[in-house]
Amino acid sequence: MPIYEYACKECGHEFEELIFSQKDEVVCPRCGSGNTEKLMSACAAKVDSPGPDFNALKNTGGGCGGGGG
């Protein structure tokens, strides 16, 4: 059950809504209008590792520039 971000076209209020079905009507919690639009939102993901250690690659001579440090 995803949470979507919406904006009310009547009062401009932005809010989040938990949607159980795509058929559900989304109503603005501020003014009660059903004239809303879904906003584009960024997603978040949990990562178990911190990722690559880019400092370890410094001065190794690899990459686009070639050459060695």
Rank of each mutant, 00 (worst) to 15 (best):
Q22V: 01
L39N: 09
G61Y: 13
G65A: 12
S21H: 09
M40G: 13
P29K: 01
I19W: 07
D24Y: 04
C11M: 03
E16Y: 04
S21R: 02
C64R: 15
T36E: 01
M40Y: 15
K58M: 04
F20N: 12
T36K: 06
P29S: 04
A56V: 15
G62R: 10
L39W: 10
G34T: 10
K46T: 06
C28K: 04
M40Q: 14
V27K: 11
Q22E: 10
N59H: 13
D24T: 04
C31R: 11
C43G: 05
V47R: 10
L57I: 07
A7S: 07
V26M: 12
K46W: 15
K38R: 14
V47N: 05
P29M: 02
C28L: 01
L57R: 13
H13R: 02
S21Q: 03
Y4F: 15
C31P: 14
S33M: 09
E16Q: 11
A44H: 15
E37I: 14
D24P: 08
L39Y: 07
R30C: 05
L39P: 07
R30M: 05
P50S: 00
A45T: 02
S49T: 08
N59Y: 13
A56N: 07
E5C: 10
C28Y: 07
G65W: 14
T60E: 06
Y4H: 11
G51Q: 03
E37Y: 13
T36G: 01
Q22R: 03
K46A: 07
V47A: 06
E10P: 09
G65M: 15
N55K: 13
N59T: 13
M40F: 15
K58R: 14
